[in-house]
C-alpha cells in the first residue's frame, strides 16, 4: 500500500511525497519499516502521530 501511495504521488508529480496519520500500534512500522519522519501527534486527528515521507525517503523505500 505504501508503494502504491508513492507511485500515485509520483504520477501526480509530488515526487513521491506522502503523509499519513498512524494508529499507535503502527508507529514503529512507519518510522523504522518505511523510513518515514514522525512529525508529532496531531491534536486535530485524535492525537494520532503524523508521518511524512520525503522524495529521498520514497526513493529509498522503492529501492
Amino acid at each position: 500500500m505504501i508503494a502504491a501511495a508513492i507511485h500515485l504521488s509520483l504520477a501526480e508529480e509530488f515526487s513521491g511525497r506522502i503523509g499519513l496519520h498512524s494508529l499507535p500500534q503502527a508507529d514503529d512500522w512507519y518510522s523504522r519499516g518505511c523510513g518515514m519522519t514522525a512529525l508529532g501527534p496531531d491534536p486535530a486527528v485524535q492525537n494520532l502521530r503524523y508521518f511524512e515521507m520525503t522524495p529521498g525517503q520514497a526513493a529509498e523505500f522503492l529501492k
Partner: peptide
C-alpha cells in the same frame, strides 16, 4: 498508474512485515 515491483523487492519488503502489527483500513477516523 503503473507499479513495477519485482518479486525480489516484494519478498524483501514482506519479511519485516511478518511480525509487525500494522492496522490500516479505518476508512473514516
Amino acid at each position: 498508474m503503473k507499479m513495477n515491483l519485482s518479486k525480489e523487492w516484494l519478498t524483501k519488503r514482506a519479511a519485516p512485515d511478518d511480525r509487525a502489527e500494522v492496522s490500516a483500513g479505518f476508512f473514516n477516523l
